[in-house]
Simulated assay, not measured.
Amino acid sequence: MTLPGLLDIEHLRTWVGKQEVMTDTATAFPVAALSATLDRDDAKPRPGDVLPPLWHWLYFLPLARHSQLGPDGHPQRGGFLPPVPLPRRMWAGGRFNFRKPLHIGEAITRTSTITDVSMKEGRTGRLVFVLVRHEVAGADGVALTEEHDIVYRDAPAAGEASPPPRPAPGGAQWRRDIVPDDVLLFRYSALTFNGHRIHYDRRYVTTAEGYPGLVVHGPLIATLLVDLLRRHTDAPLAAFRFRAVRPIFDIAPFAVCGAPGGDGPDGSKTALWAQDSDGFLCMEAEAVTAPG
């Protein structure tokens, strides 16, 4: 089925089943650097220390040559991910199961598999969804599994209205206010070798993309939500899921919030969310900590 604009979904679906294996070493420097970026007062990381949850995103970084980058700063389409011919690419969400810890200093391997490519017509135009499953293993075998949701969409039409915002939940027991200044976004982009210009190039993001300011990275928001949990409990994280709802821009502070739930046989659940300065929901998440 070929759609207008040369979007051949059947061709894109031939990427389903494609695998990529990457190896790395969980070195200490990016751990110390992310700790500083998140304004944590952690001890200097040492070999053998446990890698905090989601901090595996500091490794297995894409190293496309500069000549292979597209105009938005992303690597050119194709390769492992299908060459979806839609201009906007977003990290829409993810789901994680943590089986055992990773440790600083150990060799780690990530096996990535494209498990689905699908398309639908949304209110704002065409959407293509790519689902990637990652398995990250250390010396003791698979440590975590991750399902990564990527969505590609058309650029908005002139004068197109944004979806109506949803109010954030009430009843937060934990809250941390974040000022997403240029330095925070630059440091996170540098740590994750993310060249996407929407996170650091104000002229590009406001003129080419039409956003009101720099876009706060979805993975950074998810990391801040888990970091909020870590600031209030030492219980190990067993599972985590998040979904992006609304972009956050650097033009105003935002808040990460949490509301612990009850204990169950599978662990304690905590509702987590990020909200903008107007109180609208931007990311929703749930964490499950291991039973005590």
Rank of each mutant, 00 (worst) to 15 (best):
M1P: 03
L237E: 03
R123A: 11
D149I: 05
A143D: 02
A290W: 00
R77W: 00
A222E: 02
P85F: 06
R13M: 01
M22D: 05
F29K: 14
G17C: 04
S35M: 05
Y188C: 06
S268E: 06
G48T: 12
R197L: 11
T207R: 15
R13Y: 02
D42F: 13
L281G: 11
V31T: 04
G93V: 03
L61S: 06
G79Q: 11
E121D: 12
G261T: 02
P53C: 06
G70R: 10
T111Q: 15
M1R: 13
T23Y: 00
P265W: 07
R175A: 14
D41K: 15
K44S: 09
R203K: 12
A244L: 12
R153T: 10
G264R: 05
T124D: 12
T124L: 15
F193T: 06
G125P: 02
A158I: 06
I108R: 02
A290V: 11
P62G: 10
F98A: 00
Q68D: 15
R77A: 14
A92V: 01
A252D: 08
A290K: 14
G170Y: 04
T2E: 14
E284H: 13
G78P: 07
G122Y: 06
K100A: 08
T113F: 03
R231E: 01
P236W: 02
